[in-house]
Computed example of a mutant assay.
Amino acid sequence: MLMSLDHRPSVSAAIRATMLECNPHRKAMAARKVARDWRLGRLAFEFDVTMPDQPGRPDVPELLPPGRMPKRGKAGSERGRIALWHALAHIEFVAIDLALDMAGRFGAEMGEQFVSDFLAVAADEAMHFALLGRHLRALGSHYGAYPAHAGLWTAAHDTRHDVAARLAVVPMVLEARALDVTPATVERVRAQGDESGARILERILDDEIRHVRCGANHFADVAKRLDLVTADLWKSLVSRYFRGTLKPPFNDSARLAAGLSRDLYAGVA
């Protein structure tokens, strides 16, 4: 009988352990380590554990449903500015787990390149969270100082059974929305004299274009494998699994750079 001589830890076990980490700093560091260890061949392409239904979360921030979220404060006020950066940091924190879960939950089905791509996304999101956390501290605050939106993980839970649905909703709707709203946020932050914050957001925007393109490319591969028209499959899955609405205005140039044509999303907006 042939025995495996591969004693490397499985990539799924490393991903699961990172997702279950509650401390934000340690989770971000662990996500970057998983991506690095995978890239360097230290983890085996094995899926011997399942992904958690809920990732680890710190005691703070308090997570609230959308209707109970407090107002950020008057635009331009110190409280309003800090609340904006806190909300952005929370989005990036949850995005770490979204990318990890993508790789760990669907990697066996989708293959090694898929795992590589989404672990790289997780590392980017961890870096974004670290940059935003540092900016919050420079403003005299910290992650956890304000309540945060509880609904960001909902899309992952709703699509946990179907990689096509996950790709359709998370990269191609939720992350694509950031391509629309970030440029105006950059302008507003720069007008407030926060040049370092504006540069952070510009870096995140560049990375998010790449992340959306990664999701769109893998979604197109799934549609091809199913012998379905990419646009038709996407519209069907979005109507079924996305709880919100696609709202213009759209950043057509950034979306096109990310592989999303106007014809794709205009019909469901």
Rank of each mutant, 00 (worst) to 15 (best):
S4R: 08
D6V: 04
D6I: 05
H7L: 08
P9D: 13
A14R: 06
A17N: 03
A17G: 06
E21N: 06
N23F: 02
N23V: 03
P24D: 03
H25I: 11
R26Q: 13
K27Y: 11
A28I: 04
A30N: 11
A31K: 01
K33Y: 05
R36E: 15
W38M: 03
R39C: 07
R42L: 09
D48T: 10
D48R: 07
M51Q: 14
R57H: 10
D59F: 03
D59V: 14
E62K: 06
L63N: 05
P66G: 12
R68Y: 07
R68N: 11
K71F: 15
K71Y: 15
A75W: 15
A83D: 14
W85P: 00
A87N: 09
A87L: 04
A87G: 08
A87R: 13
A89R: 04
F93T: 02
F93H: 10
F93I: 08
L98Q: 10
L98N: 11
L98T: 08
A99P: 12
A103N: 05
G107F: 02
A108L: 09
E112Y: 14
F114T: 04
S116N: 07
D117N: 14
F118S: 02
V121A: 01
D124I: 09
L131R: 03
L131P: 00
R134S: 13
Y143G: 04
A148V: 06
H149Q: 13
W153H: 12
D162R: 05
M172W: 06
E175M: 03
A176P: 11
R177L: 14
R177N: 12
L179Y: 02
V181A: 14
P183A: 15
A184R: 09
T185S: 07
V186K: 05
V189R: 00
V189Y: 03
A191R: 12
Q192G: 15
D194G: 07
E195I: 15
S196N: 04
R203V: 07
I204P: 04
D206F: 00
E208P: 08
I209V: 15
C214Q: 10
G215V: 00
A216Y: 00
F219M: 02
V222S: 01
K224A: 15
R225S: 14
D227C: 12
L228R: 03
L228D: 01
T230L: 08
A231I: 11
L233Q: 11
V238C: 01
R243E: 10
D252R: 11
D252S: 09
A254S: 09
R255H: 08
R255E: 00
A258H: 00
A258N: 01
A258E: 01
D263T: 06
Y265A: 02
Y265C: 06
V268A: 02
A269R: 13
